[in-house]
Design a protein around this nucleic acid. Structure first.
Lengths: 138, 138
DNA sequence: ACTTAAAGGAAAATAATTATCTTCTGCATA
DNA sequence: TATGCAGAAGATAATTATTTTCCTTTAAGT
């Protein structure tokens, strides 16, 4: 994961072992809550402070390096900023995944109906993932 | 607002002056945070407890009478449950409004791409409301 | 290597939410 | 209409979540 170092640098964030670990956690797990991150990092840094996680996530959000994802009925998750995308959430196993869908049609309609100038969209679709669908019907 | 009484009853929520007030606040203001509600109710019930607001909102959410709306960079807002709709948020004046848009196209695409069974969608579009657009360019 | 601004860690301070307990009240029923 | 009770309100304490402070350590430029 050498890229992560470059990536952090390019966002003007000082590179520290804790920050590298946060990025690696996010890169490998995708969507994590503050508590998830803290638990994950504790294994590598037994003395890490919860405040460090908060401070870093806030700093990274500040620099738009990570983004908060607000999900119904769940605590916020964080992900590395990437190309705009929507999220699907499984209400059964709680997993969160990215989905790339075309938003042009709905965006046009929203602009048309609301007369707002839209700069950002946060789309969360909740339901059952394929695995939990079969589990349900079983 | 006589309907509100019937409405509360139909959701098996005991009718109290505080609850009527909460419903009226939500009905007239649309989207309110816990704090907004508390401040609003304080004028009518100088002794109301913040815990009462929390307990009632939770009870109402439980019964699906109200719904939480999670908005980027803001504290959660609550609204009376109504026909499914999306939200537009002005990043300048912070106002939140409902927008009714067709979700069929995007829903189909999400289902197609993710293979999830989708039961719910939470769509939030952020930008500038018409008033703030003109204010910006002025 | 040396310097310094910034990051980490521990703990305290705030904020947000929930729980507990007592008193009060909506409302079903006699 | 009177009465009993489940559930609601209010006050407060207890939890939980998040942010800030303060001091020590460290990344990174010179």
């Amino acid at each position: 994961m050498k890229d992560n170092l470059e990536l952090l640098k390019s966002y003007q964030l000082k590179i520290t072992p804790q920050r590298i670990a946060i990025v690696e956690e996010l890169a490998s797990h995708g969507h994590l809550s503050i508590e998830d991150l803290y638990q994950g990092l504790l294994e590598r840094f037994p003395t890490i402070s919860l405040a460090t996680v908060y401070k870093n996530i806030n700093a990274m959000e500040e620099k738009a390096f990570v983004q908060e994802v607000k999900i119904p009925e769940q605590k916020s998750k964080y992900e590395l900023t990437k190309a705009n995308h929507a999220h699907v959430v499984c209400q059964e196993c709680k997993k969160v995944e990215d989905v790339v869908v075309s938003t042009k049609v709905i965006l046009d309609e929203v602009k048309d109906v609301s007369h707002y100038q839209i700069d950002r969209d946060d789309l969360v679709f909740t339901g059952l993932c394929p695995e939990c669908v079969v589990r349900q019907s079983a």
